[in-house]
Design a protein around this nucleic acid. Sequence first.
DNA 1: TATGTCATGTAACTGGTTACATGATTGC
DNA 2: GCAATCATGTAACCAGTTACATGACATA
Lengths: 178, 178
Amino acid sequence: MPRSPQTETAVLGALSVQPMTGYALRAAIVETLGHFWHESFGQIYPALARAEAAGHVRRATAGRTSGQAFELTDEGRERLRDLLREPADPTPPRNGLLLRLFFGAAIGPDDCLAMVREAGERAAGAAERLDALHAEVLDETDPGAPYRALTVEYGRAIARAQRDWAERAAAVLDGLRD
Amino acid sequence: MPRSPQTETAVLGALSVQPMTGYALRAAIVETLGHFWHESFGQIYPALARAEAAGHVRRATAGRTSGQAFELTDEGRERLRDLLREPADPTPPRNGLLLRLFFGAAIGPDDCLAMVREAGERAAGAAERLDALHAEVLDETDPGAPYRALTVEYGRAIARAQRDWAERAAAVLDGLRD
DNA sequence: TATGTCATGTAACTGGTTACATGATTGC
DNA sequence: GCAATCATGTAACCAGTTACATGACATA
């Protein structure tokens, strides 16, 4: 039974853009929030049910044949503003790659090199995708667009930093092979 | 009852550097792995108990007056190598700052600016600390030093990217005010 | 009429955190 | 002898994931 305010924020936030079914909500979170946020499937419906009980969300009466879109109520919009203003609780860091690399001497440079190269490729791919996404966002003109652009720029900056580090790290590890 | 192989990796890894008590282990994980890894207190002892049951770790007989240092057995060293070679399972992203910023239009530029500035300051502080740490690691000469240096360089690269992004983002948000 | 996708939910489990309880050792 | 810190552990939660169960609707 998940009940973190962070999940609530994501759910209400996504519904603030447009009313959706739970199913569509999940897809929206994966697609548009995916590069910096994640909700597992089993969290969406309970979160929606709680939001409905709290009066933050209601089932839209609009004539849908299957499924019922949820829409934010005025209280929900208020609640979202409150949640957004709350300080983000920082996720404790857990970087599996660095954990392995830190003790890398135990397995030698070859295995480490493979890991670093793979991470570098993932980062390079992410950087490219975010470049494309950035170009898209810049074309949008609604009031939310500049904010969304900032999040894309963040992701891109991090992805580039990872990619460049991986390249340097690979060179160092290659030098350790001899 | 935590039992992830990641916790096991961190515990065995730390003990591979030198035998320690559970208490010291926790301190070591916070201090030296802190910038990319985290274990909560309640995980260390159960993990040690499991490692002891599996024969990966034994209580050192060395004449300590209080507490008993744990040391890796040969099986433990073997197990650590296996764990290090396993692919890291990527932590799903959850960036609270970006989640808020994405829906930033709902609360306006001022609140967003405050969040971004704070994040920027944290990143700048981290970058400085990692600069200092990097200088230290470069002085070390054991076979593990180059690997540890890579992890510090990673942290530094990310911290700098965050710091620089925050500065640019603050400028954009400042422009959105009026 | 069968297949795929949209849709809604639940239960069991894994992983992780927090708060508490307890005692030994060291330094003043 | 007292306080601080070192040390070991447990129990009760909280958070999050996965796998399962179910059915409606669209379309080929």
